[in-house]
Design a protein around this nucleic acid. Structure first.
Lengths: 140, 140
DNA sequence: ATATTTGCAAACGCTTTGCACAGAA
DNA sequence: TTCTGTGCAAAGCGTTTGCAAATAT
C-alpha cells in the first residue's frame, strides 16, 4: 500500500474529508524520500503550481503525523523537519555540520544496548533519537 | 577550578567585561546541576532578587555556550534547555514522557560503537546526542 | 444541507536586536 | 574617557489559530 492510499484510508476511516489540498500534498511527498521542513513543502507545492496555503501545509503535516505517515525531528536550531516514515523500522542520523546533509544509518548493537540500559534504570522505552553530528566525507 | 573562576577567566582572556549581571548568573548556576531554560534562569535570578533582564540572560547564556561552560539541548517541542557542562565527559538522556524528568546515563559500548559507524561512513564525529524517551520507574 | 476545511491575517511564544543610557576598564 | 554591556521595547521567526468564505459529503 503506497502512502497516498494509506492516507486516504486514514482520512476515510476517521471521517476527515479528502480535499484536493490534502491529496496533493501527500501525492507530492509519496514519491520523494529525505527530509524537508514545512516551508520547504509549501515551496515544493508552489513549484508544482498546486494552490495551497502555509496554514494548510501545517495542518496537513499535523494530520500526517497523527496518521503515522510522517515522522518529525527537531533540528538543533529548534525548527521541525519531517520525513515520510520509513516503513522498515527506526534509523538514526548522521548530520553534517557543514553542508547540513543528513545520512541515515541503523545499528542493532546500539539498539539492543539501549534496551539493556533501560532495564537497568527501570525505564520503559517508547522511542529514541540518536544524532551524530560532525563532518561528512565530502566536507571534512 | 570551579565554574565561576572558569567563566571570569574566559571573560578576561577574551576582553569581555566582568559585569555584575554575568557574574551573578554564573554564580547562580555554578551550584545547581540539572536542566533549565532561559526563562527559568531569569526567574531564578528574580527569585534571588538579582536585577537583570531577559535580554541579558539570553546574551549571557550565549556567552556561556561559547565559553563551553554551558551545553544546550533542543527539546522535542523546539525549546532550548541548558545544563552546566558535565566536567567528566558526555552523557545521554532518558526523558520521561509523563513527568518530564530527565535521567542521565553513560554507556561506553554505545559510545564506542558510534565511532565504528562513523568510520564506515567516512564521517568525522564532533558530537552526538542520544535521547531515549519513554516512562520512568515512577510513571510507567 | 451542513459540518469540515481553507486562506488570510493576526496571534503566539521564544529568542534576538536597535538604540540610548549605564557602567567597566 | 571610551568602548562594551544593559534594559527596554520592538522586531523576527516558525508555528498556530479565529473567522468568514469555500467545499466535500
Amino acid at each position: 500500500m503506497d502512502a497516498v492510499a494509506e492516507f486516504t484510508g486514514y482520512l476515510k476511516s476517521n471521517g476527515f474529508k479528502r480535499t484536493k489540498e490534502r491529496l496533493s500534498l501527500i501525492k507530492l511527498l509519496s514519491g520523494k524520500p529525505g527530509h524537508f521542513d514545512a516551508d520547504g513543502l509549501y515551496d515544493m507545492a508552489k513549484g508544482e503550481s498546486l494552490e495551497t496555503s502555509r496554514a494548510s501545509v501545517y495542518r496537513t503535516i499535523a494530520l500526517l503525523k497523527k496518521s503515522g505517515l510522517l515522522s518529525e525531528s527537531i533540528r538543533k536550531d529548534g525548527k521541525a523537519v519531517y520525513e515520510v516514515s520509513p516503513a522498515k523500522g527506526h534509523h538514526d542520523h548522521l548530520v553534517c555540520l557543514k553542508c547540513g546533509g543528513i545520512e541515515e544509518f541503523k545499528d542493532n548493537v546500539i539498539e539492543e544496548h539501549q534496551e539493556k540500559i533501560c532495564r537497568k534504570y527501570g525505564f520503559e522505552i517508547k522511542e529514541h533519537r540518536l544524532e551524530i553530528r560532525g563532518y561528512c566525507r565530502k566536507c571534512r
